[in-house]
Amino acid sequence: MCGRYSLAKSKTELENRFAAEMLEPFAPRYNIAPAQLVPVITGESPKGFSHFYWGITPAFSKNKPVASKLINARSETITEKISFKTSFKKNRCLVPADGFYEWKKIGKKTKVPYRFVLHGEGLFAFAGIWEEYETENGDIAHTFLILTTAPNQLASEIHDRMPVILPPGQEATWLDPQTPENVLLEMLQPYPDKEMMTYTVSPMVNQVANDNPYVIRKTLPMDQFGNYTLFG
Rank of each mutant, 00 (worst) to 15 (best):
V38E: 04
N91G: 05
A73V: 15
T57R: 10
R29T: 01
A97V: 09
Y101C: 09
M22E: 04
A59P: 07
K105T: 14
R92T: 14
R29D: 09
M22W: 07
I41D: 01
E13L: 03
H51F: 15
P39M: 08
G107Q: 08
P46D: 08
I78M: 08
S75I: 12
P25S: 08
T77H: 10
E80W: 00
P28R: 02
P46E: 07
V95S: 02
F49G: 01
F49T: 04
K111L: 08
A20H: 01
S83W: 00
L14F: 04
K81H: 10
P96Q: 03
V66F: 11
P25N: 08
T42K: 04
V40Q: 02
I32Q: 03
A27I: 14
E76P: 10
E80Y: 00
K90Q: 12
R29F: 04
S83G: 06
A19K: 12
P96V: 10
I71Q: 01
S68K: 11
A33K: 02
D98V: 02
R74Q: 13
S87E: 06
S45Y: 13
K104G: 11
S75M: 11
T57C: 11
N72P: 08
G43Q: 11
V95Q: 02
A67N: 15
A20G: 06
E15L: 03
K104D: 09
S61L: 13
E44G: 15
R17A: 08
F49Q: 02
A59D: 15
E24I: 13
S75Q: 06
V112M: 06
F84V: 05
E102H: 08
T86V: 05
V40E: 02
E102P: 09
K47R: 15
R115E: 00
P34T: 05
D98G: 05
P39R: 01
P28K: 03
Y30V: 11
S87V: 09
V66N: 02
G107R: 05
E80D: 15
E76G: 12
S83H: 06
S68C: 03
T42M: 11
G55V: 00
D98E: 06
T42W: 06
T110Y: 00
F52K: 04
A20W: 01
V95N: 01
G43C: 10
N63W: 02
Y53T: 00
I71M: 07
A20I: 01
P34W: 07
A33L: 08
W103D: 07
G99N: 07
G99D: 03
G107H: 10
T86K: 15
T12E: 10
F18R: 02
F18S: 02
G55T: 04
V66D: 03
A19G: 09
N91Q: 13
K105Y: 13
V66A: 06
A67K: 12
K81S: 12
I82R: 14
A97E: 01
A27M: 11
I41R: 00
G107F: 14
N63K: 13
V38G: 02
I78S: 03
P25L: 09
K108F: 12
K105P: 07
Q36R: 12
R17W: 05
E21F: 15
K81M: 12
K62L: 14
R115S: 04
A59V: 00
I56D: 03
S50R: 14
T79Y: 07
Y53V: 00
E21P: 04
G48M: 12
P34D: 05
S61P: 00
E15F: 03
G43D: 10
S45A: 15
N63Y: 10
K111R: 14
A33D: 06
P25R: 06
R29W: 07
